[in-house]
Design a protein around this nucleic acid. Structure first.
Length: 564
RNA sequence: UGGGGGAUCGUCUAGUGGUAGGACUACGGACUCUGACUCCGUCAGCGGGGGUUCGAAUCCCUCUCCCCCAGCCA
């Protein structure tokens, strides 16, 4: 995984763990990652994954992957499978694979215990009534008329709830705590609801299902989890978490610690909204490369290492944050810059005829797989009389400091020769259709004359050898930083209509599609690209642009334009 | 106006009484057969007001702003 020389930045949770270990509270820590299998994991989940697994790795502890599968109405096996895949892809392996549903029997027994102790009762009010009587943020709730039921009656009713004698919603089991508690979670929270629905793992066995609060802490205790890490919104559930643990003969005593979610700008990060985007076809599935899901990022070309490093570098705290997407992009660039083999691809082709290159000839040039890592060897790149260059690399009437091709100007063809533009050919509409250039044979890469310096270097692909490819360019999914900020408009209104741009006729050099070629490349000067085999229909290769390279020139132009 | 949290460079984050540090971004420069990378340098911050103290991001008071909670969701 990470190089051992990397130092782990500390944070308040790590400090707690360290202190607990030093104090001898635990022989070893146990953490857990507890997703509900009701959707795909996103980059925010990766924070929790890295935190939990990272802590256990660092301190020699264990981490369980536990499916919090207490609501059969929302859950599905396909999500569970996707979650497993994503966690493994991220680079982590769990010690035990657990399910809250594994504990349904134990939970039921403990609930019986609470009933017998007079700490839980069957409430037969309907949902609306329960809600109405819960009180408000400022007013206390009122006791249910069923709150005083006898233990015998509670036991009988609860048994029959379990046996499936009732319809959905007819009764619930509630903890008897305090209807006037200022913390609403303590106003006799529901422990079980009747759901006559099959569960993806327990089938038709159960007609009642435990609520989150009644399942989570107990599951932690059963697994001997020492540090139960969750996000901030559960902070005011902690008193309840502790209360439930106090009522049962728990086999261990876990501690809940909350940290802030990591939000990214220009996207949304709730499963509910991501599901909407998928179901309403605003994107092409959970693994659409524009999605912040791990499946989407993977398809986009993000590497596990870059995501791990991203979260490690950001740290963990309790303050709300919105992380700039640029930070994530920078993390992949960094990783890919070191690992991705280089190649040339032309996305917006303009034909160049090398007038003094013999017709029908092919010359094979040597080009480094990675210029900073000569040990990775070289690839062979063919050139012929006609080549493609990037349309944007030529300007007939260029601005100041334009180092690329212009009439009469010289530029180096990356890995090849210096050429001079001698003619600009235009179509009837005045648009440039073709360039005639003369190459300087002395300036060939690797030859004595190669050290002649020209200011610009551009990439190219031999027209006779280039492979046709489709390239998909991505921009941010939303056009505003925080799509949820405006309470008056729906976040979907802020979807960026230009988040996907399909380039049908790009050309890539042959090495990119050769046998055994990597799926990940840096197309020099344009960005990092991931082969998307799943998207390929016929023979044509498809590439997703993971991220662009930093482009100081483009930024300069933008600034100039802004200044007028 | 109930309860629970939070506020430190643009962003993320260290720092519980002793010169406010790092990372990313931005900016300037060097290098360059990728206007990339790398290297060097620069800018930039303790929400406000009081108080305690020789000394306060840190302790006290007060104000402001932000987030979460009234699912038989998690």
């Amino acid at each position: 995984m990470e190089a051992s020389t990397d130092t782990t930045p500390t944070n308040f949770i790590r400090n707690i763990v360290k202190a607990d270990l030093e104090a001898g509270k635990h022989a070893a820590i146990v953490t857990r990652f507890p997703p509900e299998p009701n959707g795909f994991l996103h980059i925010g989940h990766a924070k929790a994954i890295c935190l939990n697994f990272g802590l256990a790795d660092e301190f020699g502890g264990r981490t369980n992957l536990r499916f919090d599968d207490t609501n059969p109405l929302k859950e599905d096996e396909v999500y569970a499978q996707a979650i497993l895949d994503d966690v493994r892809w991220l680079g982590f392996e769990w010690d035990e694979l657990c399910h809250a549903s594994d504990y349904f029997d134990q939970l039921y027994d403990w609930a019986l215990h609470l009933v017998r102790e007079g700490k839980a009762y069957v409430d037969s009010q309907d949902a609306d009534t329960i809600r109405a009587r819960r009180g408000t943020l400022t007013e206390p709730g009122e006791d249910s008329p069923f709150r005083g039921r006898s233990t015998e009656e509670n036991l009988d009713l609860f048994q029959r709830m379990k046996d499936g004698e009732f319809g959905d919603g007819e009764h619930v089991l509630r903890a008897k705590i305090d209807m006037a508690a200022p913390n609403i979670n303590l106003r006799d929270p529901v422990m079980y609801r009747i759901l006559n629905a099959p569960h993806h793992r327990t089938g038709d066995t159960w007609h009642i299902y435990p609520m989150y609060d009644w399942a989570h802490g107990q599951s932690d205790a059963l697994e001997h989890v020492t540090h139960s890490l969750c996000t901030l919104e559960f902070e005011d559930h902690r008193p309840l978490y502790d209360w439930f643990l106090d009522q049962i003969p728990a086999p261990s005593r876990p501690r809940q610690i909350e940290f802030a979610r990591g939000n990214l700008n220009f996207t949304v990060m709730s499963k509910r909204r991501l599901r909407e985007l998928v179901e309403e076809k605003h994107v092409d599935g959970w693994d659409d490369p524009r999605m912040p899901t791990l499946a989407g990022l993977r398809r986009r070309g993000y590497t596990p290492a870059s995501i791990r490093r991203f979260w490690r570098d950001l740290g963990v705290s309790k303050s709300d944050s919105i992380i700039d997407m640029g930070v994530l992009e920078n993390a992949v660039r960094d990783d890919l810059n070191a690992t991705a083999p280089r190649a040339m691809a032309v996305l917006d082709p303009l034909k160049v005829v090398l007038t003094n290159f013999p017709e029908g000839d092919t010359e094979w040039l040597e080009a480094a797989v990675h210029p900073q890592q000569p040990e990775r060897g070289s690839r062979r790149v063919p050139i012929s009389r006609e080549i493609w260059v990037e349309r944007g690399d030529f300007m007939e009437d260029p601005p100041r400091k334009f180092f690329r091709l212009k009439p009469g100007g010289e530029v180096r063809l990356r890995n090849a020769f210096i050429i001079r533009c001698t003619d600009v050919i235009k179509g009837a509409d005045g648009a440039v259709t073709e360039l005639h250039c003369e190459l300087d044979p002395e300036s060939r890469s690797g030859m004595p004359g190669a050290d002649r310096r020209v200011k610009g270097t551009i990439h190219w692909v031999s027209a006779a050898h280039g492979q046709a490819a489709e390239v998909r360019l991505y921009d941010r999914l939303f056009s505003v930083e925080n799509p949820l900020a405006d309470k008056d408009s729906d976040y979907r209104q802020h979807l960026n209509p230009e988040s996907l741009q399909v380039v049908e006729n790009a050309w890539v050099e042959p090495s990119v599609l050769a046998d055994g070629a990597a799926d990940m490349h840096q197309f020099e000067r344009t960005g990092y690209f991931a082969r998307d085999r799943a998207a390929e229909q016929g023979a044509k290769a498809v590439f997703n642009r993971t991220v662009t390279l930093r482009d100081t020139w483009a930024r300069l132009l933008k600034e100039r334009a802004a200044r007028g």
